[in-house]
Every structure is written in structure tokens, then in C-alpha cells.
Write a protein that binds this DNA or RNA. Structure first.
Lengths: 214, 214
DNA sequence: TTTCCTATTGACTATATAGTCGAATTGACT
DNA sequence: AGTCAATTCGACTATATAGTCAATAGGAAA
């Protein structure tokens, strides 16, 4: 009868709810960067988030669901690093090189993010499969153009991902060289047997500077 | 007074003790291939080993100590794959290539071993550091000989390990190509910018056949 | 102020896990 | 057969963790 409406009520708490959920998500993100989900406890999460235990279960069914939400957020952060320039690069090898470099520089500048990515790369989650699918699309296109001496797309993806992941691990454990991105990318392209893309394009967009191209 | 002697007594139970310990070690090995040590429970271990809980604590202080023992055993399995031929190869690149191929073929023929190695590669355990140290020794020698275009030994090690680990992951998740070892090794050598080692030596010893060289 | 829905709390029960310890078993030796 | 030390067993305590739920707080609308 009254205008008191479920939709309105739901809207009321939304901001508070969203804030609390974000706290839990952030705590989960931090903890999942340190240890695998199987080793994570609800008590640890709620303590880190500064909320009561019941609150966790009000927002998530279980830890698995939280981990999925963290994975999803991580996937978005990957997209964010690409969306601006990805479509402007018609060359698959240039695209791949750009992505490789972007991700690597993000990893060296944000160790917590890097740790989370490494943990997430362990199990083939939705997030990990998405990344690999994108990569394979670029690689397939390059192979179809006869640009790679590696013909098997799965092997090619393993090469790119393998070098990337291990270089990121190295950057967390050791002091990182200044031109790590260029060196690692060079290794990847040699490994793939990539015929040179037009380097001026790649280095224009991929170079260490973050200015947008004109 | 009697000849009953502690040393003798200790010897008596040794065989039984060794057998039980081996059971626990094997169960731990199997479980550590599936999940990280933080997610492992003593109850799961003793159930898998078919022994009582107290027995576990009679042989190991805690799970960490078991994990260390498993890691040590794993390290030995690596050595076993090399000791025969390693010293006969004076060329560091040939040595590295031989090891890479041996390990990769072991991984494809023994998935449980592969899974364990991948899990162990997560944390920089004693085992992982030993492998990396050996690898770096070969790489340093090759770099000193001016044989690699990659000059940074840490980056070079990351490239080799990264490709190896990811190719092994791939071999567990997908059907594996017949000449995976050769293709992956080729990618590694290109990535390192290795000037060709004398290929007849490498392929003699590294080829798919497991016959011992004459 | 009062109402009333949403979000939050933390105590509570269940179960799982770590780690201990006295009793039982084993097997070589006498 | 008996002895005895080493080994194994499993019940037991204590703690940790998962998951539930009735009570409370908060704040917008009446």
C-alpha cells in the first residue's frame, strides 16, 4: 500500500553494503596474494577486513565465491591495461608485445598485484583462461600470417606465459633491471621465431614512457 | 651387563621403521603433488599412508618437515636424471639442453612427478634453489664464452625455467605433441640467443631414445 | 519521534585438525 | 617361551575453523 517498496529499500542500503563488501574484497585480495585459496580462512579474512564473521557470510557464500570475485576484479584490471590501445593495433605481434609489456610494467610497479596474478595463475581459473584465450587469438593470427616459426599455438602461448610469469617471479624476488621489459619481450619474440614486426610501431607504443601516442 | 646394546636395538627396528617412513613419505609426495603444503593435513596424510596419527609424529615433527623430506627426495630424482651424462658434456649449452630435455621427458612420462615439481616450484624451497643454481652455473659459463645474447644470468634463468614450467603445465592439461621436447628446447635456445652448440653432440645424447650412449 | 527494512554483529554449535601419551604390538635375541 | 627396546596404535585434549542465527544498530521515510 505505502510507497515503501522493496526496490527503494534495497537501494537505501546499497552504498553501505557496497562499502562493506569492498572491504572484504580488498582483504581477500591481499590475503590471496600471499597464499592459495585452500589455505585461506574466513576468520583471517574477517579480521583483516575488520568486520564480523556473519557479515562475510551475508556477502559471500564461502571462500570460493570470494576468490571468484577477486579473480573477476583481477580480470578487469587486465582489461583496463589494454582497452585504450588494443584496438588501434592491427598487427597481432605488436598487440601481443604491447600487452606483454604493459602487464610486465604493471607487475614491477605493483608487487601486490603481481603476487595475486602469480597465485591466480596456479589454477586454471576463469581469469587465467581468459588471458590465455586472448593471447591465443593473437598468436593464431600471427601464425596464420606465417609470422612465427613456432606453429603450435598452445606451445607458443606456453612460451609467452611461461617467460612472463617467471620474469614476474624474478622481479619480486630480486632487484629488477631497468630495461627488463625490453629484454624479456625480445626473448619472447626470439623464442616464438617472430619475424620482425615494424619495430617503430611497437616501440612507439610499447616503450617505457606512458605518454599516449599522438 | 648383557650385550643388549642401544646401537644393536636401533638397528633392529630400522627396516620396519624405514618401510613405514617410506609409506608416509610416499603419501605425502602424492598429496603434495595435488595441493600446496599449507593446505595439507596430518589426518589426510595418515589416512593415505594407512598408519595411525601417532606414527606420523614418531617420524616427523610436523608437515613442514615432511615437505622438506619430499623436497629432498625430489632433488635426488633430478640428480639421478643427470649424473650419468652431465660430466661428459663440456659445453655448457649442450649440458643445459640435455638437462632441459631430460627433465621435460621425465615430466611428460610421469605426470605425478610433474605435478609435484610444479607445486614445489611455487615457493623458493631448497630444492628449487638448487635447480636454479645449477642452471645459473651453466648459463654463466655460456655467457662468459660470449655464446648468449642475453647477458643477464637471472633473466636467462627465468627464461629457461619459465618456458620449462609452463610447457610442463601445458603437458598436464593438454595432449602433448610428439616432438614437444625439441620444439620447446628450440624456443629456449632462440630466446637466449644461443649461438648454435654443436648439434650432433646434443642430439646424440638428448634425442628421444633412452638408450645409453656408447 | 516512530517505523521498519537492511546490514551488521558476535555468540553459539558442529566439525576438523594439531599434537600428546599410555597401552599394545612386533620381532630379534636369549 | 620369555625378554625388551623400538615401533605402532588410537583415544584423548585442546584449539581452529566453518557456518548459523537471534539480536542489534543504522538511517531514511512517515
Amino acid at each position: 500500500m505505502a510507497k515503501i517498496d522493496a526496490a527503494r529499500r534495497a537501494e537505501i542500503g546499497r552504498e553501505k553494503r557496497a562499502r562493506t563488501r569492498a572491504q572484504i574484497l580488498e582483504a581477500g585480495t591481499m590475503l590471496l596474494a600471499e597464499k592459495p585459496p585452500e589455505a585461506l580462512t574466513v576468520d583471517a579474512i574477517v579480521e583483516a577486513a575488520g568486520v564480523a564473521k556473519g557479515t562475510f557470510y551475508y556477502h559471500f557464500q564461502n571462500i570460493e565465491e570470494l576468490a571468484a570475485a577477486v579473480g573477476s576484479k583481477l580480470g578487469e584490471s587486465f582489461d583496463d591495461l589494454l582497452t585504450a590501445a588494443r584496438l588501434e593495433l592491427p598487427d597481432p605481434i605488436a598487440r601481443l608485445s604491447f600487452a606483454f609489456t604493459q602487464f610486465l610494467e604493471k607487475a614491477t610497479s605493483d608487487p601486490a598485484w603481481a603476487r595475486l596474478v602469480l597465485q591466480s595463475a596456479q589454477a586454471p581459473t576463469e581469469f587465467a583462461r581468459g588471458i590465455r584465450a586472448h593471447l591465443k587469438a593473437d598468436l593464431t593470427e600471427a601464425i596464420d600470417q606465417g609470422r612465427l616459426s613456432v606453429r603450435d599455438v598452445e606451445l607458443a602461448a606456453d612460451i609467452v606465459l611461461g617467460i612472463w610469469l617467471q620474469v614476474v617471479r624474478g622481479s619480486l624476488e630480486r632487484r629488477t633491471v631497468s630495461d627488463l621489459s625490453d629484454l624479456a619481450l625480445g626473448a619472447v619474440l626470439r623464442a616464438l621465431g617472430a619475424s620482425q614486426p615494424r619495430m617503430e610501431i611497437v616501440s612507439d607504443r610499447v616503450g617505457r614512457s606512458s605518454r599516449t601516442t599522438t
